[in-house]
Design a protein around this nucleic acid. Structure first.
Lengths: 251, 251
DNA sequence: ACATCTACATTGTCTAGTCAATGTAGATGT
DNA sequence: ACATCTACATTGACTAGACAATGTAGATGT
């Protein structure tokens, strides 16, 4: 086994076993190099593996630290339930306040050309104009996820959706008022590494995979009216839903 | 911007834009080094980023190639629907055959001590013995996902679940016959980088994140009777489910 | 025709350094 | 007391090489 893999394995097992705990500091590259009898570059290769695995982070000039991970719960199913009591808050903000934390979001509205993946889901041609309501959600000042909603422009031009203000009613309700009430949605979740843009918007450290959750809403007539892309950093979320059995198991 | 990032950005954009397509070959490290006026090591750092992003793979001694990705559909909701017609095949195999491909699975039964995460979900103490039915599922000879089911040993000792044979009825049915019929399940999905063991069992390339799907089943009495861990490589799956609206939107 | 060997190009691992960037703690000055 | 500067330890970026490992294609032998 190459030296750099031995180094990675050594500290990985210390972290996994709990011997090294979150926020603990690792030895310096120099110390590790001496300990394993290799040069610093080899140590860097080995620790680089743990960085891309999301187990440690480097804080210059302090050293390497074991990464902390606590998951916030993400419930895709809740979206098709009636809204909570206070209409001035969306479900995300409500949940955060319930947990005693401070939410905050920055909304930005723009007209963009639909990328192929979006166009397909919205049933339009690639390159056609869509309205994008892009927002990054923050908790206690730290970004936690991306929520970019997209609407075909014919459906929403002249409506409130074009305004970058926060819509207490929620965009689903605005769409319903415009005559496009959704009664069905398809959810698709992809697991991948983030793009540089996502890394920037979410201040992601290296080694953080994301879930890309595409939520496409349809009217009763089967017309897609919105497609929302949620980008959830893996180190900050877990996705939760419940099932109840349908039909009787035979026997 | 550092040279290695410029290199990564250059080839990333060529891949994203479609200029470089799946299976296309990149220039050799040497050529890239000459082109950007840096040494080979710097090129390796840059290409290393794209490898960990899952965009390219290195095939020695042939060079770097743009990675292909095609997603197989994973439907967690289907699990709580009645089973398909042919009782000798489970849902996974049925789906694969429908797609004209050849499924195959290797089942291995063992007694293990419950890790803390499992113990918590099964409502037992960490370290207690559980029965693990571990299996890797293959399509056309290639591993696609891990499906490890865990049962408290008191519930299933002396039952067929202890046998490493394939159970046409399915373990849920066996549990039901033992008096532990599930009528509710909680699904939790975590996004993370794979462990070395998962990399080995699934033959994962570097830069492949996974979804870990914990499916915990409960009887009507609220007792957890099984916890299944599905590990889905991000480059081979998308998770899909559907929602239908409950309750009437006001207005 | 067939098997076997060999040269080769390419990536993989590693050494031994240099200089830059960065946040902190302690020294210094007023 | 307070602000400012400076030295320092640490990680980040990079150079210039060496040798190993690995499939393949072509040469060679029978």
């Amino acid at each position: 086994m190459p030296a750099y893999q031995r180094i990675a394995a050594a500290y990985r097992s210390q972290i996994m076993s709990g011997e090294l705990r979150p926020e603990d500091r690792l030895p310096t590259e120099h110390e590790i190099a001496d300990r394993f009898g290799v040069v610093r570059q080899t140590v860097r290769t080995g620790l680089g593996i743990l960085v891309t695995e999301g187990l440690i982070v480097a804080r210059r000039p302090h050293g390497y630290f074991v990464r902390r991970r606590e998951h916030m719960v993400y419930r895709p199913q809740e979206k098709s339930r009636p809204r909570p009591a206070s209409p001035e808050m969306d479900r995300f903000s409500q949940q955060i306040v319930d947990e005693g934390r401070t939410p905050h979001q920055a909304i930005e509205v723009s007209l963009v050309q639909a990328a192929p993946d979006l166009a397909e889901r919205l049933g339009i041609a690639a390159g056609e104009t869509v309205v994008a309501r892009r927002r990054v959600r923050f908790i206690n000042g730290e970004p936690v996820n991306i929520n970019d909603s997209h609407f075909p422009i014919e459906l929403v031009k002249d409506s409130e959706i074009m305004s970058p203000a926060y819509l207490p009613r929620g965009t689903d309700q605005v769409l319903a008022d415009l005559g496009y009430r959704q009664d069905r949605a398809i959810d698709e979740i992809f697991i991948r590494m983030p793009t540089p843009e996502e890394i920037h918007r979410l201040s992601l450290g290296p080694g953080t995979p994301v879930a890309a959750h595409y939520d496409t809403g349809y009217t009763a007539a089967g017309t897609p009216v919105q497609c929302t892309v949620n980008v959830l950093p893996g180190d900050r979320h877990k996705i939760v839903f419940e099932r109840h059995w349908q039909g009787e198991p035979a026997g």
